[in-house]
Design a protein around this nucleic acid. Structure first.
Lengths: 128, 128
DNA sequence: AACGGATGTTAGATTTTCTGACATGATTTT
DNA sequence: AAAATCATGTCAGAAAATCTAACATCCGTT
């Protein structure tokens, strides 16, 4: 529980997140606009990122490099973060959607995404 | 070594350090002026703090509350940090190199750290 | 009472970040 | 091939965060 607090506490300004992820501010803001992340804001409206946010960004970056597009990543997250809500199905991907995702995958000869999503996402290794 | 990198990497703006330590900006700047800490600076001259810096501030706060004054704390540190191995941080690493190093480590599933820090600041309250 | 140490407060300058708009190269769709 | 879409670059103007420097204040000591 305390752990969750630690990793979700917003402590990093965008400049540092840029360094940590090698993403531009433009990219980070775009991913937020596309609902892939939801960084906190200061009273003055500045974005402030948690360790979890950085993990997510690294994962997003990874997916993009493997050929997925933002929409696909969003779908992944939507279906992944459903286990909470056991109402009906975790919103299954339509055939068309799935085909689109898979086509992207094959094009870039990427591994199945079950792997990538597990590899990254542990920035806490940076810190003690 | 990597552990040292993690804890010395400047990632926190003063506003966050204020929250983490319950110190005012004035206090933090004063302690720097008095050579108790040496936070990094951005290109634009903004202070950027490491986890070690925060630990140090918590320790300083503790000492002050116990009745020591700044001069006394400085003396303490001067005699404590005499040990020869204090050139452990090769100042030759560029920021880019550091970041790349850290990212590499992350990809390769770095193992947990072991080394105990000399300081006993309780930042670990916040981070794993 | 005067002094020095630690902190508060304020002002003006500079840096950082923000949003919004438009530009661009690469694909995909029509 | 033209048009549309995606992800990102870039720029401008505004607002927020931070900086230094100076002066003020509170509180123990001398």
């Amino acid at each position: 529980m305390t752990n969750r607090v630690r990793r979700t506490m917003p402590i990093l300004p965008i400049s540092i997140v840029m360094q940590l992820t090698d993403l531009t501010a433009r990219q980070i803001r775009y991913y937020e606009e596309q609902k892939l992340i939801s960084p906190a804001r200061t009273e003055g409206n500045k974005r402030m990122f948690s360790l979890n946010d950085v993990d997510a960004l690294l994962e997003i970056k990874d997916y993009l490099e493997q050929g997925l597009n933002v929409a696909g990543i969003r779908k992944l997250y939507e279906s992944k973060e459903m286990p909470q809500n056991d109402q009906a199905e975790p919103k299954t991907l339509s055939d068309a959607e799935l085909r689109s995702l898979l086509r992207e995958e094959m094009k870039h000869q990427a591994r199945p995404f079950s792997q990538a999503s597990q590899r990254h996402g542990d920035l806490s290794r940076f810190f003690k």
